[in-house]
Amino acid sequence: MKKSRITIVMLICLGLLMQASIAMAVVNDVDTQGDVRKEQKDIKHRNKDGTVPDKWNLPKPEVVPHPMCHQKARVVTEMA
């Protein structure tokens, strides 16, 4: 009888702990975006016929690693 009571209490505690961790995750996510506020972002204007200007759809430039990144990687490798 006592064991089952202890198990129930433990399950309740576990449930509360999980809820608290979810709440913390929500709060953390809010914090990381700077008080849930928008960043400064320009308004781009759509064409009057509803289409999107071609320049909006240009592919993003390929990300080229900064030379320093290579250098650091090499250093790490050498150290390892």
Partner: peptide
């Protein structure tokens, strides 16, 4: 998701680099 968090809030959609505001 503009900040890649555990949850995607409405403002994350605004802040993401793959979205553009065309009307406000």
């Amino acid at each position: 998701d503009g900040n890649g968090g555990l949850y995607v809030w409405p403002i994350d959609l605004v802040n993401d680099n793959d979205t553009a505001i065309f009307v406000y």
